[in-house]
């Protein structure tokens, strides 16, 4: 255990995103993707980010690591504050995407794993080569030492016969195995934050459960915080301490897992929960769907973004003004006129 890490206490602030706004330059003009997101995450905690495709879940987390393509603009006034292992806190939006500072953060402090374990590995290098690359990017170790660390990481994520797997190419591993290997790459430098961008979506249900359990075990062992991005509420219920529900680039409701699942306030959250299929609840026979389609980001509705699909729509209010954040309890916030006094 490195001495600096002894000062790191679970529950201390780790990541604070304030008023994050990201837009994309396209041929059709500038398209807003993330519009004023606030997130704060404590050391060792797990935040679940839920939302439909295109709601800005991935964009807001990729912005943290400055991994967005060149066409993306992070607006002035956005702030992403991160507390490093050495106790210093840094403003990540100040770093250029190719700077040494952000490279030290990437993989060293914050790691990212992706939805498709197949394409996250390059097919022309062995799994071992790519883990060693991650190790040597952050630690001044020899090739032999890096190999030892890599093999140790592979066995830690539950890959049997890690010495053999180390020498194999990604296409020789199964989907679940590859995602485990990807996790071992991400955790090889002991980051304090793991961003998991739909890590279980491409896996079948039994493998999904295994990977989720593995992530929980590793979190207890290594103490990292996790931001878990998914559109699967069932998955989020298993792993998250806090949940943020996103819709069209903004967070509509945020609270503890208990708040979101047992005391949802926003009509969108309530609809999402109603849309989950449940065993034994077959009385209606049909699943509830949310009315309408998610609007194109090119034509953002005025006022509250959700008013076009909302069952509680109040004319002249929801489509005119943007609702402010309302505090339900110290940890539970919602953006909806139903709760604004």
């Amino acid at each position: 255990m490195e001495t600096a890490e002894n000062y790191l206490v679970k529950g201390d602030p780790l990541l604070e995103i304030k008023d994050l706004k990201v837009s994309f330059k396209t041929d059709e003009g500038i398209i807003p993707a993330v519009d004023g997101v606030n997130i704060s995450l404590k050391r060792g905690h797990t935040l679940g980010l839920v939302g439909e495709s295109g709601s800005g879940k991935s964009v807001s987390t990729w912005a943290v690591l400055q991994l967005l393509p060149k066409s993306a603009i992070i607006h002035k006034g956005s702030s992403i504050k991160f507390h490093c292992k050495d106790g210093e806190s840094v403003e990540l939006t100040d770093f250029k995407s190719k700077s040494r500072e952000i490279r030290n953060i990437r993989g060293g402090e914050i790691s990212l794993i992706f939805q498709e374990p197949m394409s996250s590995f390059s097919p022309v290098y062995t799994v071992g080569n790519q883990i060693m690359e991650a190790v040597r990017a952050h630690r001044d170790v020899s090739k032999e030492e890096a190999e030892g660390i890599a093999i140790d990481m592979l066995s830690r994520v539950g890959i049997p016969n890690p010495k053999r797997r180390f020498k194999q190419y990604p296409f020789e591993l199964s989907g679940g195995m590859r995602q485990r290997a990807m996790i071992s790459v991400a955790l090889s430098s002991n980051p304090s934050l793991l961003i998991a961008d739909e890590p279980t979506t491409a896996l079948d249900v039994t493998i999904q459960a295994q990977v989720l359990n593995l992530m929980k075990e590793l979190q207890e062992e290594l103490g990292m915080a996790i931001i878990f991005i998914t559109h699967n509420l069932g998955v989020i219920a298993q792993i998250a301490d806090e949940i943020a529900v996103m819709y069209l680039g903004g967070i509509v409701e945020q609270g503890t897992r208990h708040d979101i699942f047992h005391n949802p306030k926003h009509p969108y959250t309530m609809n999402l929960l109603r849309a989950i299929p449940r065993l034994g609840k077959t009385d209606g026979g049909r699943l509830v769907a949310i009315e309408g389609q998610i609007p194109s980001p090119m034509e953002r509705p005025s006022g509250c973004c959700f008013h076009t699909r909302c069952s509680e729509y109040m004319p002249d209010r929801c489509n005119v003004n943007i609702p402010q954040i309302t505090q339900i309890s110290p940890e539970h916030t919602v953006r909806c006129f139903l709760y604004e006094s």
């Binding site: 690591l65 991994l67 190719k98 990212l112 394409s119 990017a137 990807m182 790459v185 991400a186």
Partner: peptide, 15 residues
């Protein structure tokens, strides 16, 4: 534009 390149960038490899 491959994800594997972004993945390598995300583990802190220089450009």
């Amino acid at each position: 534009n491959k994800l594997s390149v972004t993945a390598a960038r995300a583990r802190g490899v220089s450009e």
